[in-house]
């Protein structure tokens, strides 16, 4: 599968390059521009050098402390939801029926939460969790659990996490299901002849075959959970206090709430950079692992 070198392929890529550059590079230049300047309104800008970046990366300032607090909060959130959604998604994919109308029915129900607008997802859980009119809040309170996501930090966190699991586990499950479907039956027959245990089948056949789709799933879930905005904003508004204020919520507060363009732009750039670095590490590690595996498979 060696690809041929052909520089004319650039012509095929050019349209994509142009349309993405239009949407990405021009706005990014604006952000970079803002990040080095200060404004007092009236479209008057003053050169501020790296001032905003210094303030942002120094936890003793107001901006820095807010940034780092929301950053750790957000990383913790991403770690928790990845730890729940990836195993759960794999289990659900393994539990899918084999054929018949049930497959179609399960696929439709699984995909349903993915196609609900994010603010509606927030609205659904906002209603569902309310002690007075929501089923979840009502049931929890009536069995004696004092649950209120508006005033209790832990409940707010639990609600946001359960909401994200509800919203996104299906994506992991669908991708894993696609990976599982691509395993030829011969593999299972061979495993049966060898007398392989259920666990051995999972680790030796199913997990390696799901590796590519799991890479996609983990990348997508990390990116989206790290830039989550709409759902927690609708449900908790970042509260109680600042307990569910993730980086995007903090950013929008600074940019559109206080209209501190310089600070917001500096925050944007650092934020973007973190996401790109983390994803690049993920991507390189996982593709290298895949390359190693296929090399050993090829040798054997």
């Amino acid at each position: 599968m060696d690809k041929t070198v052909n520089q004319k392929a650039w012509f095929l890529v050019l349209p994509v390059f142009l349309i993405v550059a239009f949407s990405a590079v021009l706005p990014l230049m604006t952000v970079v521009n803002y990040s080095f300047q200060d404004t007092f309104g009236n479209n008057q800008f003053f050169w501020n050098g790296v001032g905003w970046f210094k303030e942002l990366l120094d936890p003793s300032t107001d901006l820095g402390s807010r940034f780092f607090a929301s950053l750790w909060r957000n990383l913790f959130f991403s770690a928790v939801i990845l730890a729940i959604e990836v195993p759960l998604g794999i289990i659900v994919a393994l539990s899918m029926p084999r054929e018949g109308w049930r497959v179609a029915a399960c696929l439709v129900i699984l995909a349903l939460p993915l196609l609900i607008p994010w603010n509606v997802v927030g609205t659904i859980w906002q209603i569902f969790g309310r002690p007075d009119i929501g089923l979840l809040g009502y049931v929890l309170n009536s069995i004696g659990i004092d649950y209120n996501y508006v005033s209790n930090e832990f409940d707010a966190w639990a609600t946001v996490i359960v909401m994200d699991v509800w919203h996104w586990t299906s994506l992991v499950a669908l991708l894993c299901y696609a990976g599982l479907k691509s395993i030829p039956d011969a593999y299972y027959q061979a495993a049966q002849i060898d007398g392989a245990s259920r666990w051995a089948v999972f680790t030796a056949i199913q997990l390696p075959k799901m590796h590519r789709v799991l890479l996609i799933a983990v990348l997508l879930r990390f990116m989206d959970s790290f830039m989550i905005y709409t759902e927690p904003f609708v449900v908790t508004g970042g509260g109680p206090g600042n307990s569910t204020t993730f980086v995007s919520i903090e950013l929008v507060k600074i940019a559109l709430g206080q209209f501190d363009l310089g600070k917001a732009a500096a925050l944007s750039l650092v934020y973007n950079l973190i996401i790109i670095i983390v994803c690049w590490v993920f991507y390189t590690v996982m593709t290298n692992a895949g390359a190693d595996r296929s090399r050993t498979e090829g040798a054997a």
């Binding site: 690809k3 041929t4 070198v5 052909n6 520089q7 004319k8 392929a9 650039w10 890529v13 994509v16 390059f17 993405v20 949407s23 990405a24 021009l26 706005p27 990014l28 604006t30 952000v31 990116m223 790290f226 830039m227 905005y229 980086v247 995007s248 950013l251 929008v252 940019a255 559109l256 363009l261 917001a264 944007s268 934020y271 973007n272 996401i275 790109i276 994803c279 690049w280 991507y283």
Partner: peptide, 29 residues
């Protein structure tokens, strides 16, 4: 199908835009 100058970098650059937080782009857009 093809290898061309900067293909891998271009692919990752494209992907990196998928990672850009919409909150960053709201105001410049």
């Amino acid at each position: 199908r093809y290898r061309f100058l900067g293909d891998k970098h271009l692919f990752f650059w494209l992907l990196s835009n998928r990672m850009a937080p919409p909150a960053v782009y709201a105001l410049p857009f």
